[in-house]
């Protein structure tokens, strides 16, 4: 699995994708830093991470995930992975963690907002870490969806569009008072912005991610039967 993580993470930065992702993320961060923290003149960074996750991931998740399996399938490199003695589980997890790595790099850079606020006021570092934990979990959920979309098609664009469609839905679904509201991953991100780790939300996001990772593994393992 380590080999896959290493190669995939490196690939993000060998192509422009890694830099584009971090650039877009920091842009969205900065916009919301101005719109929330600076406009309200507060030291609270909760809404900064909330809104960046809500709007940023719609663009970021598909960019990070659309080539994952679709490109391998199209170029045939899938044959190299599937015929090597690595289990599908470790390939899928390897790719997932590599994408999470890019997110974590962004989050580390996003500490600068904390230090900017710290210069003027007295923000709590633990609250910010809770925001970040929530951000990582939500990103994980979004990436797992994108990864699943990428595994079911050999066309990157279709994979990207499916991911965007799903994430845009989560924008609206959280306001709809129905059972589908639970399909919105942002519904599991309501306590993190106030600095609270709730078991319900952590488990909700982790199980959501686990579900789509397992779907991906199942799809990839079925490939050798139907191909």
């Amino acid at each position: 699995m380590l080999a896959v993580i290493k190669k995939e993470f490196k690939s993000y930065f060998l192509s422009p994708i890694g830099y584009v992702v971090i650039g877009i993320f920091l842009f969205v961060f900065s916009v919301f830093f101005y719109l929330t923290t600076i406009q309200y003149g507060s030291v609270d960074l909760g809404s900064l991470y909330f809104y960046t996750a809500l709007y940023g991931l719609i663009i970021i998740a598909p960019i990070l995930t659309m080539r994952m399996f679709a490109e391998e399938r199209k170029s045939g490199t899938e044959q190299l992975i599937l015929t090597s003695p690595v289990s599908m589980v470790s390939v899928v997890f390897g790719k997932f963690f590599a994408a999470m790595g890019v997110i974590i790099v962004t989050l580390v850079i996003s500490f600068m907002y904390f230090f900017i606020v710290k210069y003027f006021g007295n923000p709590n570092i633990y609250t910010v870490l809770v925001h970040m934990l929530g951000f990582i979990l939500v990103s994980g959920a979004a990436i797992s969806i994108g990864m699943f979309a990428s595994s079911i098609t050999e066309n990157q664009i279709i994979a990207g569009v499916i991911t965007i469609a799903f994430l845009v839905m989560t924008l609206f679904l959280q306001d709809v008072n129905s059972i589908f509201a639970y399909a919105s991953i942002m519904n599991f991100y309501s306590d993190f912005p106030s600095g609270v780790i709730s078991l319900k939300e952590v488990l909700g996001l982790i199980s959501f991610t686990a579900m789509f990772i397992s779907f991906t593994i199942i799809v990839m393992q079925r490939r050798k039967l139907v191909k």
Binding site: S11, L14, S15, T77, Q79, L80, T83, S84
Partner: peptide, 17 residues
């Protein structure tokens, strides 16, 4: 699979490596 080295048809490679 550990005993097998395979060169597929159409030589798929990772172009960015």
């Amino acid at each position: 699979k550990k005993q097998i080295g395979y060169m597929p048809e159409g030589v798929p490679l990772y172009g960015d490596l």
